[in-house]
């Protein structure tokens, strides 16, 4: 993973509550066995009608939001299915951060594994950002992970962020590689496991 220090750019507003991962990437696009190429299917059923024609009113289809790097949404964003395809689609589209009052636990974890920031801010702040993005699509936003600060015109906010996820993101670390350094401890644990635990093959 590439290190993630600062996300800057503009915002796209999605003022909806309880956006589940089925909406972020509908199931018909989960059949790919690659990790890339999901961006064009992001929010597919909202972005296109039954014939596959783009809905010009949907935020991602509006030209002023095409280059947005930060998605701002309502509470309980990313609930439901554990599909990592949801953060893959957001990242592939060009988003580098999502801001919402709350997130689904698995979704947030998945985001941070792939270098997409899931930033929780109080609902009042999110409402301000939604209004700002709606009224000024070119408003510049900066999410500074190192200092845990968000700035946009008229908005300066600190945010909470998991210290471990921050360390991994800032340094672009390979978590599997780190865990493999614990090999001897893992092997020792394995030796102490009870014999009655199941094995699925010999």
């Amino acid at each position: 993973m590439e290190p993630v220090l600062i996300v800057s750019g503009t915002m796209a507003p999605l003022p909806r509550a309880q956006v589940d991962t089925d909406q972020i990437i509908p199931k018909q696009f989960l059949k790919r066995i690659e990790r890339t190429g999901f961006g064009e299917f992001l929010f597919y059923d909202w972005a296109r009608d039954g014939e596959g024609e783009k809905d010009p009113g949907f935020v991602l289809n509006r030209p002023q939001y095409r280059k947005a790097t930060v998605l701002v949404a309502g509470p309980d964003f990313g609930t439901g299915s554990s599909r990592e395809h949801a953060p893959w689609a957001l990242h592939d589209w060009g988003f580098r951060a999502v801001i919402a009052p709350s997130f689904g636990d698995i979704f947030r974890s998945n985001c941070h594994k792939i270098g997409l920031l899931a930033i929780e801010l109080p609902e009042a702040v999110v409402d301000t950002l939604l209004a700002l993005a709606d009224e000024q699509p070119n408003a510049a936003v900066t999410v500074d992970l190192k200092h845990q600060k968000l700035s946009a015109p008229g908005v300066e906010e600190s945010f909470e962020f998991d210290a471990y996820a921050k360390y991994m993101l800032l340094n672009g670390l390979d978590e599997i590689g780190l865990t493999m350094l614990e090999e001897s401890v893992i092997a020792e644990f394995e030796d102490s496991r009870p014999t009655f635990k199941p094995r699925t093959s010999s």
Binding site: R35, S82, R83, E84, H85, P87, I106, S109, N110, K113, I114, E175, I176, T179
Partner: peptide
């Protein structure tokens, strides 16, 4: 439930 990066881990 876990994501695919965690499946790999």
């Amino acid at each position: 439930g876990i994501g695919t990066s965690e499946v790999e881990h």
